[in-house]
């Protein structure tokens, strides 16, 4: 059996006093691809933010182990350094900080110090894969980026930071078909390059086409309503969540 990367046990989370996640269990092993589906407001993004450590999300109970260590006691940056990554649905715009400097700071935090020149050289193939012009590196982080450009920039960070587990929070939403394909190619490259695990929060199947899904989880009303293999994705695409809502 392969190594366990993430183990969530009985996780309950509240935002502004309102319980959003209710006793969630979920385990991801090394290199596995998990899909998290669910209707709007089910708490999918909350799970992503809680795992990454957004202070707005209050952990009520439960335990999360990441690579054998207690994740919840770590600060956000320590979680990142441990190998957790979250691709944001709508990443923040940071004026005056270039994309290149941002990624290099993240790499440096992990102990990988590279000169700007070398970084730009190394990142060239990733940029090509993501169909991004090199000029993005010198642009202010996400400032004036279109929705698609922001998502690509997130995946570029994923490729550079090489985490053990990447949570993709609706990375494919709002993108046209070509952009989804591009982003998907980036995710596939991440997966292949060092067998990274994935938790993909999505509404569509487009982003999954190039990947082989190991497990599917259906989150409804803050708890896991169903689990299954890749076939569950197709089933939900066909029938929606109604069946779980009525339960």
């Amino acid at each position: 059996m392969s190594q366990e990367v993430l183990k969530i046990e009985g996780l309950s989370v509240a935002v502004d006093g309102k319980v959003i996640l209710d006793k969630v269990d979920l385990t991801i092993n090394e290199g596995e691809v998990h899909v998290l589906m669910g209707p709007n407001g089910a708490g999918k993004s909350t799970l992503g933010y809680s795992l990454m450590g957004n202070p707005k999300y209050e952990i009520l109970e439960g335990k999360v182990t990441f690579k054998g260590e207690d994740l919840l006691e770590k600060s956000v940056d320590k979680r990142a350094k441990a190998g957790l990554f979250l691709s944001f649905q709508s990443p923040q715009e940071i004026p005056g900080v270039t994309l290149a400097d941002f990624i290099r700071s993240g790499m440096e935090a992990k102990g990988e110090r590279v000169s700007l020149y070398k970084f730009k050289k190394n990142v060239k193939s990733d940029l090509e894969l993501l169909n991004m012009d090199a000029s993005y590196l010198d642009r202010d982080l996400n400032v004036g980026f279109s929705g698609g450009e922001k998502k690509k920039a997130e995946i570029l960070q994923l490729l550079c930071l090489k985490p053990a587990l990447a949570i993709l929070d609706e990375t494919d939403s709002g993108l046209d078909v070509d952009a989804v394909r591009t982003v998907s190619a980036g995710v596939e490259a991440y997966k292949k390059s060092h067998n990274g695990a994935l938790l993909i929060i999505t509404h569509s199947t487009k982003i999954l086409e190039a990947l082989s899904v190991d497990r599917t989880h259906v989150l409804v009303g803050g708890h896991i309503a169903a689990e299954g293999g890749p076939e569950l994705v197709d089933e939900i695409n066909e029938n929606g969540f109604e069946k779980y809502l009525n339960n």
Partner: peptide, 20 residues
């Protein structure tokens, strides 16, 4: 939070925002 999620400490994240 966004900057910290890439490994920057809280102080580094704030310093980066202020420098920007």
């Amino acid at each position: 939070f966004y900057l910290m999620s890439r490994g920057l400490s809280e102080e580094e994240a704030k310093a980066m925002i202020v420098s920007g």
